[in-house]
Amino acid sequence: MTGAAHGRFVVVPAAYVFLLRGAEAHTEVLLQYRQNTGYMDDHWAAAAAGHVERGETAYDAARREALEEIGVTDIALEFVTSMQRTRGGEPIDERIDFFFTARAWSGEPRILEETKAAELRWCRLDDLPDPVVPHERAVLDAVRTGTTTAYSTFGF
Rank of each mutant, 00 (worst) to 15 (best):
L31M: 14
D74H: 15
D60S: 09
A62T: 03
G55Q: 12
D60M: 03
V72F: 09
M83E: 13
T86R: 13
R64Q: 12
A76H: 14
D42M: 13
A76P: 09
A66D: 07
R54K: 14
Q35I: 09
E68I: 06
D41N: 10
D41C: 09
A48V: 07
Q35M: 11
Y39V: 09
G50F: 05
R87I: 10
A62Q: 08
R87L: 11
D74P: 08
R64M: 09
L31F: 14
G38W: 05
I75F: 06
T57C: 09
A47R: 00
A58E: 02
S82A: 15
E53Q: 15
A48R: 01
R64P: 04
E53V: 09
E56C: 03
Q35L: 08
A62F: 03
H51V: 03
R85D: 07
T86F: 04
G55N: 12
A49M: 13
E65A: 10
T57R: 04
H43D: 06
V29P: 02
R85A: 13
D60F: 00
T73D: 07
A62Y: 01
H43I: 03
A58W: 00
T57N: 08
E53K: 12
H43Q: 13
R63V: 03
L67D: 13
D60C: 00
G38Q: 10
A47H: 06
A61F: 08
A61D: 10
N36Y: 13
D41A: 10
A76K: 15
F79S: 14
R85G: 06
T37I: 14
S82G: 13
V52L: 03
A76M: 12
V72H: 06
A58F: 01
M83T: 15
Y59Q: 08
R64W: 05
D60T: 01
A58Y: 00
M83I: 12
E69R: 05
